[in-house]
Amino acid sequence: MSDIFERILLLKKSPIFSEVTTEDLRTVAMELDDEQYFKGDRVFEINNYGDHMYILQNGKVGISLESDPKCDKYVTILNQGDCFGEMNLLDDQPRSATAVVLEDANLLSLEKSRLHGLIMHYPELSLGILKSLSMRLRNANLLAKESK
């Protein structure tokens, strides 16, 4: 299976891109860049500004709300197909969490202006992003409830 087909399948299974047809995901897949990270790398830091979102091709990434690099408490651990970092591309606010690589990972990254262009072209993407953010809000509510 060629690289592009693999990417398309990965995107189709990710919540953000699931509403876009596989045929259109061809275009989306071509807009993505490959990035490789190793265990312990920090993809981005909390409170930093960023202009990329990421899709996990393989490996594991932990999301932490702490700025302390030694902290190993993660609010969620992401696996293959999960997306992260899309929030600050939409609201232009600093990153709300730190993304730490827990297992060597290959990421697909999408730059902010490209994401905006893609949303204009494939409005279904917005639905996917809404779904993904809604899931995240639910998880946050659950965590808040558990911590009480």
Partner: peptide, 17 residues
């Protein structure tokens, strides 16, 4: 098999279209 999985997705989209 990943290519078959992708094909099934594509077929489902085609069916809808």
């Amino acid at each position: 098999l990943a290519p078959v999985e992708l094909l099934v997705y594509a077929l489902q989209e085609r069916l809808e279209q």
